[in-house]
Amino acid sequence: MTTGAPTSSSTAPARRSRLRRYLPLGLAAWLVLEIWLLTLVAGAAGGLTVFLLLVAGVVAGSVAIKRAGRRAFQSLNEALQRGGSPERGGGNGLMMLGGLLLIIPGMISDVMGLLLLLPPVHKAVSRWTESALERRLRRAAPGSLGNVFQQARIHRPDGKVVQGEVIRDDRPGSGEQDRRPPLAR
């Protein structure tokens, strides 16, 4: 009996990042907690109250997202009229995130969304996010974006990673005929 090409026994699967390992567990726990809190509120205040709270969250979230979108578009329009670039860190992204959290049904997401819409919390989260991003970019090697393009690599069946690029020479007359169909007449 013949076997295929010898393979290395040291080709262990790549280790998953902490985020990819614990994110599904965190989302499941958050979902269970949201449902439990909704049932507690429904038991204490009634089903109609919970329904009205959920509808109010959707309306408030929609208003917040619309307002943030308007501000972002206005900022872009003013910057284009000045001939410059839009201001950095306008805070519209966090306002949209707060609105999205309000739209998602649940008590915890509503509280987090409302907190993000408060100006002091909004500014603190914005500063923290900006400094964390700057630290992350400083740690990356110059001229690269760290592990951003790691998933774009080509994987061989044996698990080894081969980096490269494909260069095609499809010009007519380069040894191959033009394979495109003729235009309809």
Rank of each mutant, 00 (worst) to 15 (best):
T2D: 08
T2N: 10
T3M: 10
T7R: 15
S8Q: 10
S8L: 13
S9F: 07
S10T: 15
T11N: 15
T11E: 12
A12Y: 11
R18V: 12
L19E: 09
R20K: 11
L25G: 04
G26C: 07
A29S: 03
W30Q: 00
L31E: 00
L31P: 03
L33Q: 06
E34G: 00
I35F: 01
W36L: 14
L37F: 04
L38C: 09
T39M: 14
L40M: 14
L40I: 11
A42V: 01
A42N: 05
G43C: 00
G43Y: 00
G43W: 02
A44M: 06
G46D: 06
T49C: 00
T49F: 00
V50I: 09
F51V: 15
L52H: 04
L53T: 04
L53V: 10
L54E: 08
V55M: 09
V55E: 06
V55F: 06
V55G: 03
G57C: 06
V58D: 03
V59H: 06
A60E: 01
V63N: 08
V63Y: 13
R67V: 02
G69H: 04
G69L: 03
R70H: 13
R70I: 05
R70P: 03
R71Q: 13
R71F: 11
R71E: 14
R71G: 13
Q74V: 15
N77S: 15
A79F: 04
A79L: 02
Q81V: 10
R82Y: 10
G84L: 01
S85H: 12
P86I: 02
E87T: 03
R88C: 04
G89K: 01
G90A: 09
G90E: 11
G91Q: 08
N92F: 12
N92E: 15
N92D: 15
N92G: 15
L94R: 03
G99D: 01
L101N: 00
L102S: 03
I103F: 05
I104H: 00
G106A: 02
M107R: 11
M107T: 13
M107N: 09
I108D: 02
D110H: 10
D110K: 03
V111R: 00
M112H: 05
G113Y: 02
L115I: 00
L115F: 04
L117F: 02
P119F: 00
P119D: 05
P119H: 07
H122D: 02
H122V: 02
H122L: 01
V125N: 03
V125A: 10
R127F: 09
R127W: 08
W128T: 07
A132I: 09
A132W: 05
L133N: 06
E134T: 12
R135D: 11
R136H: 13
A140Y: 08
A140S: 12
P142F: 07
P142G: 04
P142R: 15
G143L: 02
L145M: 13
V148L: 15
F149E: 04
Q150M: 10
Q150Y: 09
Q151M: 09
H155P: 07
R156V: 04
R156F: 11
P157E: 08
D158L: 00
G159N: 07
V161G: 07
G164N: 02
V166H: 06
R168A: 13
R168Y: 12
D169Y: 15
D170V: 04
D170R: 08
G173E: 06
S174T: 13
S174Q: 12
G175S: 07
G175M: 07
E176F: 05
Q177H: 10
D178K: 05
R179C: 06
P182L: 14
A184L: 12
A184V: 07
